[in-house]
């Protein structure tokens, strides 16, 4: 499911990044790669705040749709 559907406090594992070269490249740069664990810190109203390890990334809804996650543990 897309990352945008997770609720605050929930974690997921990135399965894949969909979308154009630019969006994908930008997400990859910031550490959004398959197999990574992400946690949602905020999702109400504006953009999401997503935690990858120690990093906190603000992610617009459009971008969050491009990140496909699994909520079950999945070791890639």
């Amino acid at each position: 499911m897309p990352l945008s559907m997770l609720r605050p406090g929930e974690t997921g594992w990135i399965k894949e990044i969909v979308g154009g070269r630019k969006a994908k490249g930008k997400l990859n740069d910031l550490g959004f790669v398959s197999g990574k664990q992400v946690k949602i810190y905020r999702s109400s109203g504006g953009p999401l705040i997503v935690g990858i390890g120690d990093n906190r990334i603000a992610l617009g809804k459009g971008m969050a749709h491009k990140v496909i996650v699994d909520t079950e543990g999945c070791e890639n």
Binding site: D54, I57, L59, G60, M63
Partner: peptide, 11 residues
């Protein structure tokens, strides 16, 4: 041509 918001929030 809408752009998307991605930005790091440093500690």
């Amino acid at each position: 041509e809408r752009s998307h918001f991605v930005m790091e929030l440093p500690p």
